[in-house]
Every structure is written in structure tokens, then in C-alpha cells.
Design a protein around this nucleic acid. Sequence first.
DNA 1: TTAAGAATAT
DNA 2: CATATTCTTA
Length: 310
Amino acid sequence: MREDDSNWFSKWEDELPSPEELMPLSQTLITPDLALAFNIPNPHQQPLHNHHHTPPPPPPQSAALSSQPNSSAEFDSPELSGAAGGGSGGAGGSDEPARTIKRPRLVWTPQLHKRFVDAVAHLGIKNAVPKTIMQLMSVDGLTRENVASHLQKYRLYLKRMQGISSNGGGNSPAALSGSGMDAATDHLFASSPVPPHFLHPGRSNSEHFLPFVPVAATMQQHHHHQMAVVPPPPHHHHHQQMQQQFRHFGSSPPNGQFEHPFIRQSQQAQVQRIGAPVRGSNGVVPPPYADDLEPANGRKVLTLFPTGDD
DNA sequence: TTAAGAATAT
DNA sequence: CATATTCTTA
């Protein structure tokens, strides 16, 4: 159906998020880095109520294997090479959080995924490799690994899509449910229309795709508490956009007590925003807004500046 | 429990 | 880099 093409294109174009829509309201609180830097022990979520059973069966005398501190990063020593660590930062006794620390896990919002798809479509399947995609997306804080992981899953999704579209009907999200695939699965991928040539390996694709709009992604790190309403509404419908303002700041703690901004990692939803101050490289569009979060320590929360390129 | 994202391995 | 598998966490 030719009309569908223009149709989904229009919708797709229409759904392009504005920077404002993506602009998170929340400020960043503590990061794992800071927690580590401040020697803050895991304020692991305390059992609010009596749990059904006490989960911790401490191994009698077995050597502690890989214990899993809730959010604390285990100090892994990747530099196990024989080379002496001469160039390690500056202080030898202190930790070196600059690397080896875990950053908050990326949440692929529909918008972010949209940009991802956009980038892949623009690049073409051939050039759509993680690094290139990452660069084109120009999202600050986005790592190649993030993209690679997402790309991996997305390819699987496309594969499933191909099988379905060849067998049944269109590639609409709605078709998924009719094709026996759970619409409930692949929420995210279904949120953004899949360019036709993604499913047609033979088709030569042209770069008839638009210039992306600047984007800001939100990297969020929330606890299992039903805190902020950050997560995107799983409508696989053509919902316009969920402009949820994450205002978890207005609510005071349960006990009305003040919480130290630093030592309150638990229970506080943190929305880490990875905006896109990217350098104006040769093809990438420089985002208008470029505010970087920088804690009082002078240490970047999320250091990752593609200035050096690869 | 499930699922998303990350880590790790091939 | 791609893919498979496993792990952690929301």
C-alpha cells in the first residue's frame, strides 16, 4: 500500500519529539560514582514491611563468591596485566572511579529509540554500526555499548518482523498481535515505525530520510519503588507523546524527614539526563542546548565526551 | 516474575 | 563488529 508509506511517514515525522519534550525537569542527585567517592555504604533499601521470609541465607564458611551489592560497584580490577600501574591517575591509594565505575543503566525511551531508528535509517544498514550510530545520534552519555546492545536486540526484533510480515500482513504494530506475536513484547521497538527497507534486505535504500532534530535523552535510575512516573506509557498505539513531568521532588519523604542529598540514594528516583552537547562534527547537528551536569565536586557525573572521537 | 539493559564470551 | 549467552536490576 503506497498510501501507508506516506501515512506512516507523516506520523513518524509528526512524532518527532521536540527538545522541550525531552527536556527532563529533574535534577540529578547522587550518582554511583559519588556514592563510591564518598564512601557511602549501600543504603540498601530497608524492608519497609515484614518480608515473607528472610532472604539472606549466609553461606556458612564458603568463600564469598560474587556477592552482589545492590548498587555498589564491585571493585573490579581489569588491569590485571603484568604492567605496573604507573600511570594510574595521581593518587595511588585512592580509588580510581574515573573508569571502572558503573554508570546508571540507560533507559531507552521511545524518543531515544526513535532517534536510534532514525540514525540507522539515515546511515543505511551497511554503515549502521554501533559506533557510527552512536556518533550520529549525538546523545551525550550514550556509549557505543549502549547502542550495540540495543542494536543487537533491534536486529532480533527486525528478524521477527520480517518473518511476520512475509507471512501475514503489514508491519504495523497492530499486525504483531494478529500475527501471534505478543504486542506486549518489544514495547519499545513497536513504539517506533520500522522503515520499510529495514525489512527488505534487497531494497536499496536511499537516504531520503530527514535530518534529525536534536535530542536529549533521559537516563534514569530509579528504584523499584513506584516513584517517579518516568517510564513511558506502553501504548503501542499512536500516542502522541507522554510528556510526563517527573516531579518527584515535590513529595516529601514518608517520614517527613530531611534527606541528605547525597546519602539518599535509595528511594529517590534519579533521572539522569544525558543531553547532547556534541561537537559540531561534519555531519552531526549541534544541539542547541548543552548544559552539563556537574556536581559540586567538580567531577562530572557522566563523563563521556566524544570530543576525542575514537 | 518478567523484561530491559548490560556484561561477557565466542 | 556480530551474535549468543548469562547476569543484574527495574
